[in-house]
Simulated assay, not measured.
Amino acid sequence: MAYELYYWDGIQGRGEFVRLALEEARADYVDVARQSGRGMGTGAMLALMRSKHEAYIPFAPPFLKDGEFVVSHVANILFYLGPKLGLAPEDEKLRYVANGLQLTITDLVGEVHDTHHPIATSLYYEDQKEAAKARSAAFISERIPKFLGYFEQVLQQNPGGSSQIVGNRLSYVDLSLFQVIEGLRYAFPKAMKAYRVDYPALTGVHDAVAKRKNIAAYLRSDRRLAFNEEGIFRHYPDLDLAP
């Protein structure tokens, strides 16, 4: 039975971190909100979230159905999928290390979102532009180097080698780091151009993931949605500053 991924149509967003793992493993999955021919779409996702009968309903997408089992939150989904897809360390203790790294990526993604919505998600970006400029300036000068510097150090100190961030083989965390770098380059091209040379191991992981056969095919396909100003990583020129 195919995995069912539930996420908003039209944006990469947080759902893309799960898609990358499914695509790398060539897993059989359905991107439910995008499958209009199935008579499901976004309505099925909202119906499950608002169900008065289902146990343990998810708070928000993305979430994944494996048969009747529903698992939510990106890091939690990947912690569940990783061993099944061959994208988690074989050592059980290292699986918790990988989960910790993925949770740190979750923190970073949350901060990226807050650069363009620093006051409230219910307000348009245009309603909070001045606050967004201040938040983005701090994010670029302080938080990007904080997070990327951390991941660079973990890569450099990985006993399994700096070609991957945990253990001695590719994991879902490497795929997620690829997405983070892609997203930051889209949202903050000036800032990321200046930072590029500071993180050689992180850049190496990004480039290696992009060249993987299944990922490269996915990136060329229409299944890979383009970045846009409705997702997590948004490019607003006013917010992109050279550090």
Rank of each mutant, 00 (worst) to 15 (best):
E90A: 12
P118V: 07
A60H: 13
S136M: 05
K93E: 14
A88M: 03
S141M: 00
G39F: 06
L123H: 04
R50F: 11
T115M: 08
Q128S: 08
L103T: 05
A60M: 11
G39A: 04
G37D: 11
R50Q: 14
F69Y: 13
Y96T: 12
A132T: 02
P83W: 02
L103A: 05
Y80S: 05
L64S: 03
A55C: 02
G149Q: 04
I119R: 12
R50C: 08
P61H: 01
P61V: 13
G86K: 04
A131I: 01
Q153S: 13
R135C: 08
T121Q: 08
V109A: 08
E54Y: 12
N99F: 15
M45I: 11
D127W: 00
F63R: 00
V109D: 01
Y124R: 14
V74P: 01
E54L: 15
E54H: 13
M49D: 02
Y124M: 13
I57Y: 00
K52P: 10
I144F: 08
Y96K: 05
E111K: 10
I144A: 09
Q102L: 15
S72T: 09
L46M: 14
G67E: 07
E152A: 04
F139L: 09
K146E: 11
Y125S: 05
T106F: 09
R143K: 15
H73N: 14
I140H: 02
A98S: 14
A138K: 14
E90Q: 13
G110W: 03
G82D: 02
T121E: 12
A55V: 10
G37V: 03
E142F: 01
V97A: 11
T106P: 00
V71D: 06
D66P: 09
L48T: 11
G43R: 07
E130D: 14
K93D: 12
T42V: 12
G37A: 01
P145F: 09
A120K: 13
M40C: 08
G67T: 07
S136R: 03
S141A: 15
I105Q: 02
G100I: 05
T106W: 00
A132Q: 03
L123S: 03
P83R: 09
E54P: 00
F151E: 03
A47Y: 02
P145C: 07
Y124N: 15
V154R: 12
A132G: 07
S136H: 02
A47I: 02
L103N: 12
F69R: 14
R38M: 14
A98M: 15
V154D: 03
A44W: 11
R50Y: 08
Y96E: 06
H53E: 14
H73I: 08
S136C: 11
A88E: 04
P89M: 04
H113L: 14
A137R: 15
A138I: 06
G43M: 11
